[in-house]
């Protein structure tokens, strides 16, 4: 690496410049992700936080500035009223709980479906493994939006599934599948399945075959072996996969919007409504901040669980 830097002139100059500023390779390695987080997470977060304590107004942008200057006087006005709304109206609380519940059950379903797949891939021969992993990742090559639209085509009343069922005569009235919570679960499970499979696979592929043999040798039939050995040892993978599904699913907007019915009360939709229909940016921001805080708690719980499992 350093050899490359030495040879390429622009890199050499950059390195010299950075060194003159007291920045060395190691500092840079840490600085880059830090900077990334700063620019793409912290700054937007602060902007949203600022918005959440502003007052809405008919203006462009539609809120009053926090800081007002009048000659030498400077007034900072923070409005926490927006957070008050969140508790005034049970809608928000309900939306939070609905979102968390939906995300939780989606994650559980994803786990139930993803685990056997990950297990199967991890236990396949090496050549086959790469093919199967490829198949898991393949959908990412198509736009997520297109894939969700494709589901609309499958689920609608005169869609593929209903037409097939009608044709076979299993049903004589089309099933209403689109715009239901069922469709939302389906969409989320479908979309997030790879995020469950990949960490589970990464974990299961490391599982020492000798442990399974040891269990069998000690009298463990396949099922007890799974529950006493495989499952506990794959806990880090389960938690990682669960987090990767659960956390983004809470704030999911596109899937409930496209596949969900009117009563799919996801917090993402409430936020959208607040922002677009109500053009109340401060309240929308307050919803977002509250969502973040509400999310931090389950994430912390999962993180601690993960750390504990990994320590063992």
């Amino acid at each position: 690496m350093s050899a490359v830097i030495e040879r390429v002139a622009p890199l050499r100059w950059t390195a010299a410049l950075l060194a003159a500023l007291g920045l060395r390779g190691r500092t840079l390695v840490i600085a880059v992700p830090m900077l990334w987080l700063l620019i793409f997470f912290l700054v937007p977060f602060l902007v949203v936080a600022k918005l959440s304590v502003s007052e809405p107004a008919i203006a462009m942008p539609p809120y009053l500035p926090l800081v007002e200057r009048d000659g030498a006087r400077m007034t900072i006005s923070l409005s926490f009223e927006n957070f008050g709304y969140l508790f005034d109206d049970p809608l928000y609380i309900k939306a939070y709980f609905f979102s968390i519940r939906l995300a939780f059950f989606s994650a559980v379903l994803t786990l139930l479906i993803g685990y056997p797949i990950a297990y199967y891939i991890a236990r396949s021969s090496e050549a086959r493994r790469s093919v199967l992993l490829m198949l898991v990742i393949l959908p990412f090559w198509t736009s997520f939006l297109l894939r969700v639209y494709a589901w609309q085509g499958f689920l609608r009343s005169n869609g593929v599934i209903n037409n097939f069922l009608l044709w076979t005569g299993i049903i004589d009235q089309p099933l209403v599948m689109l715009q239901t919570n069922f469709a939302v679960y389906l969409g989320i499970v479908y979309t997030y399945l790879p995020f469950m499979i990949l960490p589970l696979y990464a974990n299961l592929v490391k599982l020492d075959e000798a442990l399974l043999e040891a269990s069998a040798d000690l009298g463990g039939r396949p099922l007890p072996t799974f529950f006493h050995v495989t499952l506990p040892l794959s806990m880090p993978g389960i938690i990682a996969g669960f987090m990767l599904v659960f956390v983004p699913a809470i704030g999911e907007f596109v899937i409930p919007e496209l596949l969900g019915g009117p009563d799919t009360l996801m917090i993402g939709r409430v936020l959208w409504n607040e922002f677009f229909s109500n053009r109340d940016w401060p309240t929308a921001s307050a919803v977002a901040i509250a969502m973040l805080i509400a999310l931090v708690i389950p994430i912390m719980i999962l993180r601690t669980a993960q750390q504990r499992v990994e320590e063992e």
């Binding site: 049970p90 809608l91 009563d263």
Partner: peptide, 9 residues
Amino acid sequence: LWTRAKTGQ
């Protein structure tokens, strides 16, 4: 009112 009517919440 609209959100409530739409979602039944």
